[in-house]
Nucleic acid binder design. Structure first.
Lengths: 218, 218
DNA sequence: TTGCATTTCATGAATGATCGTTCATAGAAT
DNA sequence: ATTCTATGAACGATCATTCATGAAATGCAA
């Protein structure tokens, strides 16, 4: 199965540009291969097949396959963080809108960015037995969780709710991750409406003054 | 690293018994190896190392490594189901007690059965790219979700709540799975109290008449 | 029971395939 | 002319699997 044409496609000829181009191409191919065949399915041969580049490129640009994998994880973590942070930034200034934007972003994303999400899950699983991946999985988690917790604390203060920020924030992140895990097993079956409804029900239950029965706006 | 002594340990000599004995030993070794080194870390060599058996045993008793893995997954699924079903059976006759028993079982289990849970997660991840594992992994289709949904429906009828059984049950399973995923990254950090608090807050929020502020009993 | 033939099981060296990595070489950019 | 880049054949390690060999359990005759 050939997935990238071997014919000399247009590519940067100048040295600095070519390097970035090939690195990006290998990272992209790695994500594709992991999404399709799982973490252990990412062999150098598969990388060659998916990228259309020469066999030696992995070691030339990343020294070891291991280094490439860490770059891939970093790429995934960075772009995911940028994505949800942008969603929060686009939302209104109030905590309720921002929290919902965060959730909506996560729910909707699963409908149109399969490969990166599945690859990210694969890294997360790998981090269980390979501690070197853990910092990147955890720090992203920390930033995400910190934001959720901060927003929950604001809502609790506003509404005078009894639930603790930690518990509320953990509930939200667990819901999203459970949703994610469930989605990953069969993306075809996934319906954003359902994921949205589950999160909405949770928010309405713990933050009734902010999310109960009200009409949200994008 | 030798993990099982090679010296002729006591083992069933009669043919039928020996077969079951060796199969169980290989399955146990596989769970250990997956928990320690991840799914792709389960090689035949590792299996030999962990079980102390001869190299040919895998193919003798399971024909192919692939078949062994399916037996391992079946073993994990069966014993997990038996475990939570027993917890429900031990609970009182009312839906609220049974639902809480189910949740408490899941929360507490993470504190004392590391290996099986991590191995189960590994299979779940593998099922994403290897569909043959999916039927046994899919909690949505499994008896677990059906039970949770049934209990939620009973509570909703009793309490006259507005939430739909599907949404409530999905929320609970997502919470438990998110909790699981979070736990797996660092079992050492896990505190049953926290997991329990998150689930309790959710139940109290959506089923206030059953779980609000009341004192639960084991 | 004992002795022997038969059947089944357990073993690990050997096999071919695939893994990640190296490096001599050709080619292109500077 | 010099330096850097790209290539892919070749390498040793490890993978899952096979199978000839010896050992042990079983069935049967006495």
């Amino acid at each position: 199965m050939r997935l990238a044409t071997k014919q000399p496609v247009a590519r940067p000829r100048r040295r600095g540009e070519a390097k970035a181009y090939f690195r990006a191409k290998l990272i992209e191919a790695a994500i594709e291969a992991i999404a399709r065949h799982g973490f252990s399915g990412l062999s150098v041969s598969r990388l060659v097949e998916y990228s259309g580049l020469a066999r030696g490129m992995v070691n030339l640009h990343f020294h070891r396959k291991d280094k490439l994998l860490h770059e891939v994880l970093k790429h995934l973590a960075d772009s995911y963080r940028a994505s949800w942070q942008a969603a929060v930034a686009r939302a209104g200034g109030d905590a309720a809108s921002q929290l919902w934007a965060l959730i909506e972003h996560d729910v909707a994303r699963k409908a149109h960015d399969d490969r990166a999400l599945i690859a990210w899950l694969a890294f997360r699983q790998e981090a269980i037995t390979n501690p070197s991946y853990r910092p990147l999985c955890d720090t992203r988690e920390a930033a995400f969780f910190g934001t959720v917790k901060g927003l929950c604390a604001a809502l609790i203060k506003e509404g005078g709710y009894e639930i603790k920020p930690d518990v509320a924030a953990l509930g939200i992140t667990f819901l999203l991750e459970g949703l994610w895990l469930d989605w990953s097993l069969d993306p075809h079956r996934y319906r954003p409406k359902v994921g949205r409804a589950v999160c909405e029900a949770y928010l309405a239950a713990i933050f009734p003054k902010h999310f109960g029965k009200r009409q949200r706006s994008a």
